[in-house]
Amino acid sequence: MALTDTRLRNFKPGEKPYCESDGGGLYIEVLPTGKRRWGLKYRAQSRKQETVRLGDYPAYTLAEARVWRDDGKALVERGLSPMAIKRGDPIPPDVPPLVKEMTETFIGR
């Protein structure tokens, strides 16, 4: 079930961290401290599952996290790893200009 802002505000911390999915690989992790942070799970060319983090809720809203998820998935479809881009790995020179622009947007978040 997709997340709502009301559900996000009402998540209670537990003894262990837990995750709630929004769909499409986007999830919110609720830590025992009460901190909530966004993450994206995806499979890149290596077919291994990778995870990249956006940041904390409410600094990044649900709407912003969904846009970020869509941008990340678009990068994966073009053969780029969002985690590698966020980490600062060089972008291959044969990447089209539109995709390079998308990577700059993704990094800027």
Rank of each mutant, 00 (worst) to 15 (best):
E50D: 07
R66E: 11
K35N: 13
Y60Q: 05
E50W: 04
R37V: 00
R37K: 08
T33H: 04
Q45Y: 09
K48F: 10
E77P: 10
E50K: 10
K35Y: 12
G55W: 00
Y42H: 01
L80Y: 07
E50F: 05
K35F: 06
V67E: 12
A74D: 13
Y60C: 01
R53K: 12
K41S: 12
V76L: 07
L80E: 12
K73C: 08
G79T: 10
K48G: 09
L62V: 00
P82H: 03
G72K: 05
V67R: 04
L62H: 02
E64W: 00
S81F: 02
A74R: 10
L31K: 11
W38I: 01
D56S: 15
W38T: 01
G39R: 11
K41R: 07
E29C: 14
L54R: 05
W38V: 04
G55I: 06
R37N: 15
D71V: 11
S81Q: 02
Q45A: 15
S81T: 07
P58K: 06
L40I: 03
I28R: 09
E77N: 15
K35G: 14
K73A: 08
V52S: 11
G55L: 07
V76E: 12
L62R: 00
Y42E: 05
R36K: 07
S81W: 03
E77I: 15
P58E: 11
I28N: 00
R78F: 08
P82K: 02
A74Y: 03
W68L: 02
L75R: 02
L80N: 05
K41V: 05
S81G: 04
K48R: 13
V67F: 02
L40T: 01
G34S: 08
T51V: 07
V52K: 10
R78Y: 15
S81E: 04
W68M: 01
T61I: 05
E50I: 08
I28S: 02
S46N: 09
W68D: 00
Q45M: 14
R53S: 14
A74L: 14
K73N: 15
E29L: 12
Y57D: 15
T51R: 14
G34D: 11
V30L: 11
R37P: 03
L40M: 06
G39F: 03
V76F: 00
V67Y: 02
G39K: 11
G79F: 09
A65R: 00
T33R: 11
L80C: 08
E77D: 08
G72I: 04
